[in-house]
Design a protein around this nucleic acid. Structure first.
Lengths: 120, 120
DNA sequence: GTTGTGCTCAACCAGATGGTTGAGCAAGGA
DNA sequence: TCCTTGCTCAACCATCTGGTTGAGCACAAC
């Protein structure tokens, strides 16, 4: 099933965004592409650590890297957000649907209580 | 700043959902509350492992647990989805906004190219 | 009170993760 | 050709994570 691959993808995306530094990098990249060292300047870690973070983001498909001489400009792949949004919305809607049903059940029980009260 | 706490919260939420078993538990809970052993029946792990997963979900605020005799019914806290959706939408919108600006810049450059082409 | 059920806590283990430093490669500039 | 810049790869380390088993607690039922 293709679902296993999608689940794996989703795991990598959520896992990538579980780190505040990487979330910040994503935020930074919405303002435009940046090189590794430009990105790294904002964080108090080695360039190698920055490079590792970018690899995680790249493996999750959140980011792509091209080549410009020695530089490796990083580009945000915003479509991946859709994957997350879809997952979240699916379950949010299911949960809300259930609450609606629950509400109507409670309302019905309430009606019955009142009827029974009237009958006694 | 309250932002540090929110970032921490967001990290816990994303991290909790990075695990496919926990995502599945959340999916399962949109259908209604369940006890620990009911949830655990679907997975090939010990009850203690299930309990640990639920603790992670609870710490992230995705789930709450009450008490019913020996049972600990698990309840989905769907509002947390909002936190994620907000984060995602914020950056998605920024990214899209940037693309729109970029498009108009490219369009302008294109116009100029055409003008220059006409002038030559 | 004793026994059974549902669950959690504690200790442990293997593997992943986030950081480090050191080495090295690829491309531009002297 | 050699040096510098921008970056990655490799090895290593501490900590976290997801799993295990064993012990034990809280409540129900007998």
């Amino acid at each position: 099933m293709a679902d296993a691959a999608e689940s794996d993808r989703l795991s990598r995306v959520f896992s990538a965004l579980a780190d505040p530094t990487r979330r910040d990098m994503v935020a930074r990249l919405t303002a435009g592409d940046a090189t590794v060292s430009e990105l790294g300047a904002s964080y108090d870690v080695s360039l190698q650590a920055v490079s590792k973070h970018l690899k995680v983001l790249e493996d999750a498909g959140l980011v792509s890297r091209s080549r410009d001489a020695q530089r490796r400009p990083v580009h945000l792949e915003a479509e991946v957000f859709d994957l997350m949004t879809k997952w979240i919305e699916r379950y949010r809607e299911q949960a809300e649907e259930r609450y609606r049903r629950l509400d109507s059940v409670l309302a019905a029980m309430d009606d019955q209580d009142r009827d029974e009260g009237a009958a006694s």
